[in-house]
């Protein structure tokens, strides 16, 4: 019967809409709200779908997550911000398109050009090797090997010039070790090649780690936060090895902060913020996010500048690690 009721309300609204009353902001939202997601389908998209679904429950509309990958996430951000500023399009503001790409000079915006809703999730990562490696047993031994064999180590950070690549390059630079990064579009393939010995080490996020703990020897957790260390069952972190990345807090990890166009009316943005806060507070949502290795975040829109500002500043200050790696590799060939 629901079906027929929908048809009836549908027809009634057709009549109303045709008369020309469609600017009723008081009734926001009255249709589907789309979340533009900067990556292809995978764990990150599943997490965004979880939040979107819960948020959709709060608002009473569908909230599909639309995957628009390309150019390290900038395609999605451009797409989302080209849409009308009516609150019907939300951008899943991952650090790569939101902060890192502008820092690297590949995008012409600033994180403060947008209206924040709320912080969503973060995702710490580590440098992992395989179990059964005979050449070294910890990070410092691997670095010693790397110093003795410049340019011979093979690793993957997922895609090139992403945040893990930047952070790993910085860590290697602090040991003066040059290694070749091999880009992989799917984490799974990099992990497979790590396990089979084709790669020497790779970036391993919490999700990869909990899927098959016994396969990895986590060499270095790239965060100084205790929570991240705990996620990797106490593997050594950058404080233990006194590696100075010049990064703290959220800066060395992946995270997303949902944002909308800066011209979005405040009452609309507030409705979205309330719904997102309610969605993020739901225990079932938090549990589901944690189950895939992500950490739910609780900062609201008023803390956006305080949290994202230092990240942007720190990433800006360390951009030379990638450049250094390319130059050193060039010298070897």
């Amino acid at each position: 019967m629901k079906f027929f009721r929908k048809i009836r309300t549908g027809l009634a609204t057709v009549a109303i809409v045709t008369i020309g009353a469609n600017a009723a902001l008081a009734d926001f939202p009255e249709r589907t709200i789309e979340i533009i997601h900067p990556w292809g389908p995978g764990k990150a998209m599943a997490v965004s779908q979880l939040i979107a679904q819960a948020m959709g429950d709060e608002l009473g509309v569908d909230m599909p997550v639309i995957s628009t990958p390309g150019a390290a996430g900038t395609k999605a951000q451009i797409t989302a911000m080209a849409r009308p500023a009516d609150g019907y399009t939300i951008f899943d503001g991952y650090v790569a398109p939101l902060v890192l790409q502008p820092v690297l000079g590949n995008a012409d915006w600033n994180y403060s050009d947008f209206k924040p809703l709320q912080a969503a999730v973060s995702n710490a990562f580590s440098i992992g090797g395989r179990i059964g490696e005979t050449r070294w047993s910890n990070f410092e031994e691997m670095m010693a090997y790397g110093q003795a064999h410049p340019g011979k180590l093979r690793y993957s950070s997922g895609s090139r010039n992403n945040l893990p690549h930047m952070v790993i390059a910085k860590a290697l630079q602090s040991y003066n070790v040059v290694a070749q990064n091999i880009p992989y579009s799917q984490d799974g393939n990099a992990i497979k090649d790590l396990k089979s010995g084709v790669l020497d080490f790779a970036f391993v996020n919490v999700g990869n780690y909990i899927q098959d703990k016994s396969a990895f020897n986590i060499l270095l957790v790239l965060s100084e936060l205790d929570g991240a260390k705990a996620s990797y069952d106490g593997a050594p972190n950058i404080i233990d090895l006194s590696v100075d990345l010049g990064l703290s807090g959220l800066a060395p990890m992946g995270w997303t902060w949902w944002i909308v166009n800066a011209d979005t009316p405040d009452d609309v943005a507030d409705k979205l913020r309330d719904a997102m806060a309610a969605a993020m507070a739901r225990p079932d949502v938090r549990a589901a996010i944690e189950a895939v290795g992500f950490v739910p975040l609780d900062w609201n829109h008023s803390e956006y500048n305080d949290i994202v500002g230092p990240v942007a500043a720190q990433l800006g200050a360390m951009g030379n690690a990638l450049k250094w790696e390319v130059e050193e590799l060039g010298k070897l060939n």
Binding site: K6, I7, T9, G10, T13, V14, V17, N22, E30, R31, T32, E34, D62, P64, Y88
Partner: peptide, 23 residues
């Protein structure tokens, strides 16, 4: 339009008049 918008959550182009039917 009904099938795609109602069951598949697609937002069809509304055009400059923002003509969308909230089924």
């Amino acid at each position: 339009a009904f099938i795609f918008e109602e069951f598949l959550s697609v937002v069809l182009p509304g055009g400059i008049f923002s003509f969308n039917i909230p089924w």
